[in-house]
Design a protein around this nucleic acid. Structure first.
Lengths: 339, 339
DNA sequence: CTGAAAGCGCTTACAG
DNA sequence: CTGAAAGCGCTTACAG
């Protein structure tokens, strides 16, 4: 039993396929007699007709498909972003095709080719390798970046406002009465690490609690490196009252180092992470951290792309949108002890 | 600058588009003179030609696209499965479109329609609502289930062998010398909960350590309900030596209940989870648990579907494939104390 | 208001 | 060995 096509419906309704096409399209239906439209609709329903989106796309030169480049879906940071994009597109009849690139430039190029071969109308890019001045093909396609900025600041992008997040952290710790606030920073060769550490310097300075010697860098964003860095910090300054870790993994490393050193969290030392990864609410103690609005970033990126797609005149370059994170206070932070 | 098409290549190479088509297809290239093929290949490369997969699909009636129905990509259990499916398909020139259904029958039906409209060649289904006797459309499409079985046992499916996983757990605990082995089971209205609890009964019985009174059910697969259930268990039997939790969330709940009761893990009580969720290696203590081969399940499901797609004659019904999980021993289990 | 025709970018029998 | 033609399932000017 082959799939029902438009001509099946046409035959069933006793009209031409062009009439079926018109009847099924909201925009063109008004040019038909109501009676005709109804007859076609009835026939379509009876036959369980489902339009062939590929054929339509071939004719209209719009596939109503969007591609998304993601480093790794297995990293829990990305799925909420993907769902946000998807939901935004879905509401407007677009379908999303996600490609994992593993941050590998070759895979990225291959995925891009494959998406172009599938005639995607636009691209949401959460990876970093895509050259800004890629083969014309990429340039010709509307692109929205998510969770990263373009080389120049004029590409449409939706990113987290890390500085605002750090501000929330510093304020929270200072409000709790902490003065000896340390920072276990991320790697200096990542933009995330640099941005957060710079923001810490600024905010702690403003709050009058900045001490250069209380900053230690983790080599990589991992538990192990966070633990190492925290150990170095504790060796120099056994008296820290609070630690801001550049992300949750590093925070978990700090937690281990603190435990080894016999310091209790939060009684002796307050600890704050960044990202609000899944399950950090379940560790002991539940981690105070900063929540990046991942779903919302995805949703806005999707909406932005949609706008670019539907309003070609709106395609002038746009400034990146920065979304404000939220401080999630749990049990790893407490008032400074009255020592 | 419009996209390069096959006729652009044909003009550039001075041949007919049908010749271009033949030259670009491995199967048909041999019927052309080597020289011609080379000329076409050169022209295609020079123009950066990328075949329009949609147009090809329209003509050949194969979209080389596969749809996947997933409850929620945001649940860390699914991304590895998706990547497995993707990798299997990708290696064969197929593209995957993933749809989230939130376990909602309506959304599922809508997604299915949308995928059919996009002419998917087949379906990988990780959700449960899809009626086995759905509208003919669904039935007409090759379908492979993943992480669940069909209503009848003859549908192609790739599932975890939960019973084998439970066997590993019981053996591990018994090997450590535990005799008072408890089970905080999952909800009785889920197949997962029932299967694991039944397997526990069987295996513990075989090992001679089964005590009906040492089984407690959590109402839902959550930390809170695991904690409650474990509290009830401890109230009745303060002397349990080991607990097998039906999944990691419940295990974390047990951990909390044990701590509240002043019992140390693993010194006083050994604890085992199920699933090996991300981050359970980072909690304190790192959790001994059972790893479901999610990626591999996805890969095999993808490969199975591919086989169905490429060998229509192989489409006779197949038995479900059950994949054996792996015990991941970490620090939440230890030898029974010599009391 | 509706039909007949052309064409989107391919593939594949059919000729030659 | 290669070209010309037909057709996949749609949409949309063009007629009438």
């Amino acid at each position: 039993m082959a799939k029902t096509t438009m001509s099946d419906v046409a035959r069933h309704a006793g009209v031409d396929v062009s009439t079926v096409s018109r009847a099924l399209n909201e925009r063109t239906a008004p040019m038909l007699r109501t009676e005709t439209v109804e007859r076609v609709l009835k026939a379509a329903a009876e036959l369980g007709y489902q339009p062939n989106v590929l054929a339509r796309g071939l004719r209209t030169q719009r596939s109503h498909t969007v591609g998304m480049l993601v480093p790794d879906l297995t990293n829990p940071f990305f799925p909420p972003i993907v769902r946000g994009v998807e939901d935004a597109l879905d509401a407007n009849g677009y379908t999303l095709i996600v490609a994992n690139t593993d941050n590998d430039a070759r895979r990225e190029a291959r995925s891009l080719q494959s998406l172009i071969g599938r005639q995607v109308d636009g691209l949401v890019v959460a990876t970093s390798h895509l050259d800004d001045d890629d083969p014309a093909q990429a340039a010709t396609l509307p692109v929205v970046l998510v969770n990263r900025r373009g080389a120049d600041e004029t590409r449409p992008a939706v990113v987290p406002d890390d500085a605002a997040g750090v501000r929330l952290v510093v304020r929270h710790l200072v409000d709790l009465g902490h003065r000896r606030v340390a920072h276990v920073a991320g790697p200096e060769d990542t933009s995330t690490g640099r941005v957060r550490s710079q923001a810490f310097t600024d905010q702690a300075g403003t709050a009058g609690v900045y001490d250069e010697d209380l900053v230690e860098h983790a080599a990589v964003f991992t538990v192990e490196d966070g633990q190492d860095a925290c150990q170095r910090l504790l060796a120099r300054h056994p008296d820290v009252g609070a630690i801001f870790a550049a992300n949750d993994l590093i925070a978990i490393g700090c937690l281990r180092a603190l435990r080894q050193a016999g310091r209790r969290v939060p009684e002796d030392v307050s600890l704050v992470g960044f990202n609000d990864m899944p399950l950090v609410d379940l560790i002991d103690p539940p981690l105070t951290t900063v929540r990046i609005p991942q779903y919302e970033m995805g949703r806005q990126a999707g909406a932005l792309l949609l706008d670019l797609l539907e309003n070609p005149r709106a395609r002038r370059r746009r400034k990146p949108v920065a979304l404000t994170p939220e401080l999630v206070v749990r049990d790893s932070t407490a008032a400074a002890s009255a020592v």
